[in-house]
Design a protein around this nucleic acid. Structure first.
Lengths: 343, 343
DNA sequence: AATTATTTTTTACGCGCGTAAAGAATTGGA
DNA sequence: TCCAATTCTTTACGCGCGTAAAAAATAATT
């Protein structure tokens, strides 16, 4: 590294002995030049550590090497974890991921889509807010930018959807719970932010019907993304005022369950499978913290790796296909039951 | 919104009746043009919804309107929460924040700094990994790019540091714990990733000396950023094998405490202030989940709002000052004791 | 060695905007 | 009303790179 300053590609062309248009080709796709010239370029690259000006690069390219990643709520470790995997895969494939969080707010999601347009990304991985999303804004965006939806499906939008099979989550937990004790009642928000919640409730009702058991759905109030607090308040309310229809509670998702377990602890309700326990609690998602609740939470785990991996691969295929699929793809991955202490 | 296509600033100049250089000035700083012309521009903007090409904009500008935000570990809700506030403030001030997470890995932190250079940001808010950081890489980066460090201080690097006063955290918890029961022993990682941990241990030792109490530091093994698991394993180990020097445990941070509490629950050790409890546990950070541990965690809270607010303001001042301060600034905010059920 | 296919060089233009300079227009104040 | 200060328009050039086309060089094939 002789550390000399190289101002632009022209100068680097002189230093490396490779013409500027060839360099341009190389930086756009290193595999597109002959092996011997590629070697010459990369040797020079080590000597002079030149990097092309990304702004000048992207100015004329119809499509950049940028990939947008949008999640509804980054403070949720579930999304933070998925983002980590996706980010890495994008970088490995030579793309530049840009991360955005809607922070649960519709106007922020819209703003993000707006600024994403002017980034002219090669593609976007979008986990929409769900119920709060501005459907028409998302639809318009997907028409302009090659987009793969993940986590929350919105019918017909984007070229593909990759997510988890909510039925697989609920069928496993319901089956397990009713096989090993009283059948569960279902604990959820009355107005869930996320469409997965509705699918889970329906799956619960369906499973209970199939097992010829009586379903009970407990719906609690609260809006927004502070699920733990909503779960706790709803839990306190239920434990104080209501007779539980069964001793087994199946929460729609882990964050609600975390709040509910904290309410149980406050009310001295012992949770678990033991003889001294009065309540069993299970849930869905395998949230990174569900291992550390008291007791540890029995839950159904997303196939994190498959979901994020397949979402990225689908986007890469989409980009190679010129941004459109003949037909919208939908891929769902099954859940895996994680048995811990709470049920 | 007549929704006509406007290809570039030239065309928009024609449509709006304002010359291109003036438009350029406007987009660079809306306040820099006369009110009447600003109005004309903004009226035209509503009709034609033109947006300047960000790549062409930034190509020639020595400095962009981008701000880089780098955190060591985004899956930690603590950082996710801080990022949210910072992001919003940047947008409000007319900047474009770009978010990056080092995911606890040195080489990723270095890569981020690298790609941040080519973004030519107006400024960077950097929360370094700490112990794992490549000090010389950070130093070199800070020489080139106006940088404000936050959360973890690294002596002399960046133009300013904004964080929390670790002494204030520990002095309050130690004072409270020793006033209301047995004095605490200190629970921490043997090789903490974060320099704040060392400051907290020293603060503990100092406080205990000041109160003329005997200090006990319990150091547990484990590296990386999976603090909960490290805390749990360390907790199990201590509860099984060791005689605790006191019945009061002060954890270095909440994530360790979350793991430790889960170990206590597993070992049937009742935690809290009640007569039936054998252990008190307190900690530092006021992690977003510390409200939902069982029992809820007594802790010392960061002044989230002040830290993130002041970090952003400091960066803005730095940018206005041309990227350099005469003298490195250091601002620490005091903690606030949050009394909950665990101690 | 001759022919063909592939890759690189040369040359040249354009992208969309920043920005400098000089002159014209507008404004504000007395 | 006039002058000075401010703001705007006109004109022009450059940024760093993409990319097209034709000529030259290199590699692969016969």
């Amino acid at each position: 590294m002789t550390d000399q300053k190289v101002r632009n590609m022209e100068e680097f062309a002189a230093k490396s002995g490779v013409s500027r248009p060839t360099l341009s080709k190389y930086f756009n796709d290193p595999g597109s030049v002959r092996g011997s010239t590629r070697k010459r370029i990369e040797e020079a690259l080590e000597q002079y550590d030149y990097r092309p000006n990304i702004y000048a690069m992207n100015q004329n390219r119809r499509l950049t090497k940028n990939i947008g990643i949008v999640v509804p709520y980054l403070a949720d470790p579930f999304f933070a974890e998925i983002v980590r995997v996706i980010e890495r895969r994008c970088i490995e494939a030579g793309f530049s991921p840009s991360l955005f969080s809607s922070h649960g707010e519709r106007h922020l999601e819209n703003d993000i889509l707006d600024s994403l347009r002017s980034l002219k990304p090669a593609g976007v991985l979008l986990a929409p807010l769900g119920r709060d999303s501005d459907k028409s804004a998302i639809e318009a965006f997907c028409r302009d930018v090659p987009t793969v939806l993940f986590d929350s499906n919105i019918e017909g939008m984007g070229e593909a959807f990759v997510g988890s099979d909510n039925y697989s989550f609920v069928s496993q937990t319901v089956e397990y719970l009713s096989r090993t004790g009283e059948p569960p009642c279902f604990f959820e928000m009355r107005q869930p932010a996320n469409p997965n919640a509705n699918k889970r409730r329906n799956a619960y009702l369906d499973m209970m019907a199939r097992l010829e058991l009586e379903p009970h759905v407990l719906q609690i109030d609260g809006t927004g993304w502070a699920f733990e607090e909503i779960g706790r308040q709803g839990g306190l309310d239920i434990l104080e005022n209501k007779d539980l229809p069964t001793n087994t509670m199946l929460c729609s998702n882990d964050r609600l369950a975390i709040g509910f377990l904290s309410a149980c602890f406050e009310k001295d309700v012992r949770v678990g499978r033991g003889a001294d326990c009065t309540l069993r609690v299970a849930s869905h998602d395998d949230h990174p913290f569900s291992r550390y609740t008291c007791p540890s939470l029995t839950t159904a785990a997303h196939d994190y790796a498959s979901v994020s991996g397949h979402a990225v691969e689908t986007l890469f295929r989409l980009i190679e296909s010129g941004g459109r699929f003949d037909q919208r793809e939908e891929t769902l991955f099954a859940a895996r039951l994680i048995m811990r202490e709470s049920a």
